[in-house]
Amino acid sequence: MSGRGTKSVEEFDASVDEPAAGLSPFQMGLARVRGNRMAVIAFWVVIFYVFVAAFAPILVRLLNIDPYALDRQAINDFGLPAGPLGGVSWDHPFGVEPGTGRDILGRLMYGARISLLVGTIGTILTTVVGVTLGLIAGLRRGFVDSLISRVGDVTLAFPSLLLIIALANPMTQRLESWGIPAGNTARITYILSVLTVFGWVYMARLVRGQVLSLREREFVEAARSFGAGTGHLVFKQLLPNLWPQIIVFVSLSLPGYVALEATLSFLGVGLLAPAASWGIMLGDSVRYYRADPTYLFIPGMVLMILVLAFNLLGDGLRDAFDPRSDRQQL
């Protein structure tokens, strides 16, 4: 970090870097996304899920449903939902859970909070760690670069899903012994940390590759010849050129994390009941799906539509921002 001269570079930037009217590549990309009908629809679907998740407690009260109340009236003597289609009625628009009679719609709304929380925080953590390590590897090169790259290779050699599942219970205990509140707080902490440990490599590789090629370009060399410090190089010269790739990567890894949380909870190593997670509901539905297929179908579709929307949005962003992909399709 050489602090001297940074100011003059910024002044230089201010006078030269912003030419007359014209769209930045970023704005052009956004305009292309807006022209992609599927991506726009997907965007609004995602917004809808976020809205439902954010206001779940209020919406639940407005609709007069309670995700935690047991409704003995709604289930019959066999513990199955009374009435057709898993007990769909005005009181319970999406039916009720077999065994307990809890409202499915309400539980799905609360489940959206967990899915989006784990997905978003997991993505942010992997992105921050990945981008930072990728920048360091690309800028420092030499020993630091090979160290980071080798650690990445070794990380990828681990069977990640298997290890995540195998370590779930003991690691959660360990986290609890470190003072993290027992139960689902510790479990969410565990999921987020393993996601980061195994997820940073791809992002770091992407960023490193970009940095290695960007650092040789004239504008970076120019900035450096004016005495720009590392901070300036990273935040003013490199990152603005990396945003499109990072955004595309983020939007394509979000659905993966949402699905992974559901998968872990489904296998019984993610969150634990009575939390309302989609994965828990789906795992629970396995016991009933012969008699009550609605209980499997509705949460499954709710999960799939969110993942699909994220994927369509990510595809739209990639088509718009990646100059190599062709833009006509999807």
Binding site: A262, T263, Y289, P293, G300, N311, D315
Partner: peptide, 17 residues
């Protein structure tokens, strides 16, 4: 794009169904 979005366990259970 639809295939990528199907969680394995959901597709599996639907197939059994």
């Amino acid at each position: 794009v639809v295939g990528v979005s199907f969680p394995t366990f959901f597709l599996g259970l639907m197939f059994i169904m």
